[in-house]
Amino acid sequence: MPAVGRDPDKAPQLLQHPAISAATIAFVYAGDLWTVPRQGGDAKRLTAGGGTVSDVAFSPDGAQIAYTGDYDGNVDVYVMPAAGGMARRLTYHPDRDEVVAWTPDGNAVVFRSRRKGVTRVARLFTVGLSGGLATEIALPTAHQASYAPGGERMAYMPLSPVFRAWKRYRGGTTSPIWLVNLASGQVEKVPRANSNDFDPMWIGDKVYFLSDRNGPVTLFAYGTKTRDVAQVLPNDGFDLKSASAGSGAIVYEQFGHLHVFDVASGTARPVSVRINADVPVLRPRHVNVARNIINAAISPSGARAAFEARTEIFTVPAEKGDARDLTNTPGVAERDPSWSPDGKWVAYFSDESGEYALHL
Rank of each mutant, 00 (worst) to 15 (best):
A30N: 08
P330T: 12
I313D: 00
A249W: 04
G223D: 00
V79I: 09
Y29R: 06
V187D: 01
P300Q: 09
R6G: 01
P18T: 06
I298G: 04
R88G: 01
A264G: 01
G5R: 14
Q254E: 04
P161N: 09
T135A: 12
N214E: 11
H286S: 13
A66S: 07
Y29H: 13
T24V: 12
S265D: 02
N74S: 11
W339P: 15
H259P: 02
P330F: 12
N295Y: 10
T141V: 12
K44P: 02
Q254P: 11
F255M: 08
K241I: 13
G31D: 01
Y78P: 00
D278P: 00
P8Y: 07
N276T: 06
F261T: 00
L124D: 09
A305C: 05
V263C: 04
A268T: 08
P270K: 00
P284I: 15
S211T: 12
G185R: 12
T311K: 15
A249C: 04
A108I: 07
R120Q: 09
D32W: 08
T174M: 03
N74I: 13
Q64V: 07
N74W: 07
P176T: 05
L124A: 10
A296V: 15
T226F: 00
A108T: 08
S265C: 02
T24S: 09
V77G: 00
A48F: 14
A26I: 00
Y67E: 01
D9M: 06
T327H: 14
G151C: 10
H286G: 11
G132E: 02
E319D: 13
V99H: 07
V346D: 03
T329F: 14
M157T: 12
S299T: 11
R283P: 08
M80Y: 09
R89W: 10
V279N: 05
Y92Q: 09
L282I: 09
K225F: 06
D199W: 08
Y169F: 14
L233G: 04
A303N: 13
D76T: 14
K44F: 07
R269L: 01
G40E: 10
S340I: 10
P161A: 05
V121C: 03
V229E: 00
G246M: 04
K206T: 04
D351Y: 12
A249R: 12
T135P: 02
S195W: 10
M80W: 10
R123T: 12
R153H: 08
V190P: 02
A193W: 08
I250H: 03
N288D: 15
G215E: 05
I65C: 00
H359S: 09
G132H: 07
A43Q: 06
S130I: 05
T224H: 07
L90D: 01
T52L: 02
L46P: 07
E188D: 11
E98Q: 14
F307E: 01
G131F: 04
S184P: 02
P200R: 02
A108C: 06
N328E: 11
A333N: 14
I177H: 02
